[in-house]
Nucleic acid binder design. Structure first.
Lengths: 169, 169
DNA sequence: GTCTATACCCGGATAGAC
DNA sequence: GTCTATCCGGGTATAGAC
């Protein structure tokens, strides 16, 4: 059920997530959905949570990979940045749904937000200012890329490198 | 006319900009608007252009102020960052309208996009990677702040400082 | 849990008179 | 350039039968 909603969002963007469309996807009628969710917001909350968890998993995996083999020349922060970018770009619409708009913090499963933040905090030795700066940079890069804001043919990989290298110190 | 639209957006967000609401604001009926604009998208384009120009002006002003008195201890990039943040936060909804969603580049007045980018490019000596990294950082900080994504009571000024100082080198 | 039927609201946009 | 009258589509959500 949430899977279908996720599919809709990923395929056609957050705006395509309507109760009718979701019902169609499931082969049922829209009113039936209200036996499973109180309202549409509840569906969105599920998706936002899902997006956060996936981000967390992507970062945790990168962390672990790096711990096993602190790969040549690269740094942990770079590994996290690469993972963040790759994850976001594999489902840009879900990323937008989960990161744009204010967080429904009270409705989210306990600890998801923190879990998604932990890998970066660890990589920054809990220097909060640094962590927030890196986070803002990464989110900015991703969102500007997704929205097609950078000029045609800009070398974004180089920009990522420049940013992370600078912020690393 | 565009002023009224801007007022609507700033007061209640981009979603509040409807042809009916805009007409109300002007004391006319909705259909009359179509004598002035072909459709709603045209109104939005005007607002996006307006937002970009204002950003450009804010940055240019900061640039000039700095040129006149290269203020004690601070740097040009810091001055631009401060101006960017202040400008965005004085009309957050307009900022979102202008920076979220893909740019209607073809419909925009010639050169606006470039003009908004120039101060930063100059400050970065046209090191494009650096400029893009700074841009992403600044946009990320602003949008995360507007959306209430940072934890309650986070010291964002410190995060700005940390980011800009690092990216400056 | 599913259906049909429907209420309700709101949006963009057009036709045609004045 | 403004109006009235409308069309049309789309959304969320509820009532009540099966």
């Amino acid at each position: 059920m949430v899977d279908a909603a996720r599919g809709l969002v990923e395929k056609s963007g957050p705006a395509a997530l309507t109760m009718r469309a979701l019902a169609d996807e499931l082969g049922i009628k829209a009113p039936s959905l209200y036996k499973h969710f109180p309202d549409k917001a509840a569906v969105e909350v599920e998706l936002i949570a899902l997006g956060l968890v996936e981000t967390a998993q992507a970062l945790e995996a990168a962390e672990e990979r790096y711990a096993r083999s602190p790969s040549g020349g690269s740094t942990l922060l770079t590994a996290l940045a690469d993972a963040y970018r790759a994850d976001a770009l594999t489902h840009p619409h879900l990323y937008c749904l989960a990161t744009e708009g204010p967080l429904p913090r009270h409705a989210l499963p306990e600890g998801v937000e923190e879990r998604a933040a932990m890998p970066l905090l660890r990589a920054c030795d809990f220097d909060m200012d640094k962590a927030r700066a890196v986070w803002a940079f990464a989110h900015g890069m991703v969102i500007l890329e997704i929205r097609g804001r950078f000029p045609e043919g800009a070398d974004l990989t180089a920009a990522w490198r420049a940013g992370i290298e600078a912020l690393e110190r």
